[in-house]
Design a binder for these strands. Structure first.
Lengths: 122, 122
DNA sequence: CAGTATCCTAGGAGATACTG
DNA sequence: CAGTATCTCCTAGGATACTG
């Protein structure tokens, strides 16, 4: 629940390519969803597993998800500033279909790869 | 099983926007998957429900899905030519997660829309 | 720390025209 | 009918630098 996010959270080479045909929103939303699964996280904390995504793009992603009601943004009046992002009930409900998609991908990734090789051979 | 595809198959205005945060592959793959659900279809038959997608883009989409092993392309030696696209077992298996995602979207679309309105109001 | 502000680029996607 | 072949456009996404 409160362990730090691992830097290699999305480092699996099998998933870094385009083998996974199911996407959640834009490029990063699905991964952010996964990052927030175990509780609220800070801006810079999210950057680590997300391959050091640039602040501009992470801000855009978080704003879009906030706008869609997937997460809330809480700025604490401290110095240095601390901002936390946390899934809403709606956002958490999206983990359901995402897990189904992930299970499907894990199960069929070998078949995907094999189909590509067969296609390449002609 | 053999009814023609309806032209307004994807005409629902609620789904034409960006409210649906789950995407299958590129812009058209998910819809093609749905179009082939009930059996093989011809190239020009697919164009109708797909908003008269340009042939170039439909070809690209079909080639990508064929490459990933989602469907097969069968050219019949006739005149005029007839080509049929049909889902493979792998392609059909992707309908599982897609239906889960569609169910989720249908259930939460009102909440999505409401979240947006609330965000817009500030 | 948690962001803005600029600038830039690759490629997904469409319009249009042509062909075996 | 079932596609190619070109051309063009848009924008998601990244690089870099700066700030309250």
């Amino acid at each position: 629940m409160r362990e730090p996010l691992r830097a290699d959270m999305f480092a699996d080479p099998d998933c870094s390519g385009r083998l996974q045909p199911i996407r959640f929103g834009d490029k990063w939303s699905g991964m952010v969803l996964r990052c927030l699964e175990d509780g609220p996280r800070r801006f810079s904390e999210l950057r680590v597993p997300l391959h050091w995504i640039t602040p501009k793009v992470l801000t855009e992603t978080l704003r879009a998800m906030e706008r869609n009601g997937f997460l809330t943004r809480t700025a604490h009046a401290e110095n240095p500033p601390r901002v936390e992002y946390e899934l809403t009930v709606l956002g958490r409900s999206a983990l359901g279909p995402m897990n189904v998609a992930c299970d499907w991908a894990r199960e069929h990734l070998p078949a995907l790869a094999e189909a590509r090789e067969a296609y390449e051979r002609g």
